[in-house]
Computed example of a mutant assay.
Amino acid sequence: MVRWGRELGFSQIGVAGVDLSDAEPGLLQWLSNGWHGEMAYMEAHGLKRARPADLVPGTLSVITARMDYLPAATPDGWQAIEFERLQRPTEGIVSLYARGRDYHKVLRQRLQKLADRIAQDLGPFGHRAFTDSAPVLEVELATRSGQGWRGKHTLTLSREAGSMFFLGEIYVDLELPATEPETAHCGSCTACIDICPTGAIVGPQRLDARRCISYLTIEHAGAIPEELRPKIGNRIYGCDDCQLACPWNKFAQRSPLPDFDARPGFSDMPLAQLLAWSEEEFLRRTEGSPIRRIGHERWLRNVAVAAGNALRVQDDAGLRAGLQALAQHPSALVREHVAWALAAGGGAPSAAGQARL
């Protein structure tokens, strides 16, 4: 199975059992704290996340898979390069994992091919494949099956690959021998906690998603809290800071798949150009990308916040003009963030734009 997985582009295959009962108290406490924010689906599915056999009746084991996503052309010293991008305020930064093809599609197809290959060898069996697409405790299953340990930033960490990888699972009605779990190797390091721009990592393995930039720019549908907007900087889709700071990511692996190669513009496109994208252009440029899921309205919201942060540190006529052009946008959400951006940069929307707020 491991060899078949590697042939499909997976870096590691593991197997976990289905008794996750000791993970239930932590899940319930996280939900009770309200740290899931507006991700109502997290609460709606309740403990089904920790009970694989409830989600897919008949499940006896879970096959876990890891797929590295750094583009093949990623240079040495990539962490420093990414940090340097954050110091160029007029450029929009998209999280590394989202610069190529939508990972949901890539992993789902390859997990199904792995299941098909297993069926060829063992005969038909019941199964369902998932990747960040159902109520599944992915990190818990990955940890139990030896993919790595849960880092202090809550992501799975591997000594061989850091954390720059996707996870996928196949729930099966086969009783397979579990692989050995990995012990934790974070030690006293708190780099990920210390660097989080918004203080979203409130303690080791404790994340308040309501403050996380990835949540705010992707999952959150409404207005971004004003007190957090300046901390977002030029991040327009996701945030990699906790991973960039992690010492283990010096071992992050390049993907052999061209699917994750970065599309032009998704790492260093000028914000002024991004503000000018019509909905048609947004949809065209994000076809097959995970970015499309947030829609054009939230995209403009995010870019407007980044533009306002850029204007706070340097005046830019192109940015100011791009924001002014959106001052009367049909969306109240966009208008609000444009007005904030102009005010943050020492300007203001047109009188007509103010009247529509």
Rank of each mutant, 00 (worst) to 15 (best):
R298N: 10
L244N: 05
R254W: 15
A307C: 03
P204T: 01
N234V: 05
A304R: 13
K250D: 15
E281Q: 14
N249P: 04
R229E: 01
Q253K: 15
N309I: 05
A223G: 14
I213H: 01
I294C: 05
G187M: 05
D268R: 11
R263D: 13
W299A: 11
G238Q: 04
F260K: 02
I291E: 07
G199M: 07
W248K: 06
N249S: 05
S289V: 03
I201R: 02
L300D: 06
D316C: 11
P264I: 12
R263M: 13
G199A: 05
G233Y: 07
R210N: 00
S267N: 14
L228S: 12
D240M: 06
Q253F: 13
G288S: 10
R284W: 12
A252S: 11
G295Y: 08
P204W: 00
D208R: 02
F282T: 02
D208P: 00
F266D: 11
I195G: 03
H220Y: 11
L228D: 08
R285E: 11
R298Y: 09
H220T: 06
D241V: 10
V303M: 08
P258I: 05
A304Y: 13
I218Q: 09
H220A: 11
L275N: 06
L300G: 03
C192H: 01
I193H: 00
E219A: 09
Y215V: 03
L257W: 01
Q205G: 00
A307N: 04
R298K: 15
T183N: 12
Y237C: 04
A184H: 08
R301M: 07
Y215H: 06
L274D: 11
P230F: 08
H185Y: 14
A272R: 13
C242K: 09
G295L: 09
R235V: 08
P247T: 07
R284P: 03
P270I: 04
T198I: 13
P256E: 08
A262R: 15
V313W: 10
E182V: 13
R229Y: 00
Q273T: 13
A310F: 02
D259C: 08
T217V: 04
L257R: 06
A223Y: 15
L283V: 14
A310I: 01
W299R: 09
V305Q: 01
D315S: 14
A252P: 00
A272C: 07
M269L: 15
A307D: 07
L216M: 08
V313G: 03
G233D: 06
A276V: 11
G265S: 11
A304H: 10
A191M: 06
M269Y: 14
N302V: 05
E219W: 10
P247M: 08
A310H: 05
A306T: 08
E280S: 14
